[in-house]
Nucleic acid binder design. Sequence first.
DNA 1: AAATATATACGAAGGATTTCGTAGTTGCAA
DNA 2: TTGCAACTACGAAATCCTTCGTATATATTT
Lengths: 128, 128
Amino acid sequence: MLAPTEGELAILRVLWSDGPATVRAVNDRLNKTSDKPVGYTTTLKLMQLMADKGLVDRDTSARSHVYSAVAGQEHTQRGLLRRFVDSTFGGSRTQLVLRALGGGEASAEELAEIKRLIESLEKEDHHD
Amino acid sequence: MLAPTEGELAILRVLWSDGPATVRAVNDRLNKTSDKPVGYTTTLKLMQLMADKGLVDRDTSARSHVYSAVAGQEHTQRGLLRRFVDSTFGGSRTQLVLRALGGGEASAEELAEIKRLIESLEKEDHHD
DNA sequence: AAATATATACGAAGGATTTCGTAGTTGCAA
DNA sequence: TTGCAACTACGAAATCCTTCGTATATATTT
């Protein structure tokens, strides 16, 4: 599966959060969320290309086509994360996490949540 | 400060690990490390553009110019991380970390190291 | 000194991504 | 039915990034 570009990812995020949607719906959403306006045909073209690439499915039975994401958000995030870790942290997930948590930007709640996750992962390890 | 592209980042990683270096040295390093060969003038051009952008300093006193990274690795990683978290995880560092640690790819040692970091961060919190 | 190797500079091509205008079609309302 | 609104299709420009060829200058070797 091809990795989505930045623009494609913005569209996928709408489809993941809202479910299957028309170009109009996606474009409205992007313009509500984003800083700078996106033209309708720009979004249309991108979504058509995404359909060609197999990133989205397209239901053309109605006049307004309905698009839906093919790959799940989690799967896609994992792929993008792997690539990012490779290019920026030499493949070290630990370095990435250290950098993400360091610098005083993480709140106590975030830290606690991550600690809980780690402890549950450690428990899993012992089970097997 | 502008974010480096993929190609620029590959060069910066050489400069960070080896210190100030000539185009020749960087290009050799890239060709030793990477999978596919990179032409000398390709590296040269990229490094010239990086100098124009202010990503690297250039000492032109000798015939072979010596380049050095302007921004530190940590600072640059933080910037790239912020951008990545925004585009891929909607700005949630926690989601990023959960995704990085989930999926059974993290070893017990990695988890332990990250847990230690979190605990030291939590201690810092209580100090203030 | 001449030939060879190595440097920088730079234009330009190629590919990927994004953006937009315009043409043509279909549904709906006056 | 006529006209307006909304949709798809598509070509093409604009931008960014990468790659490379070539011109030119400078060192090094023979």
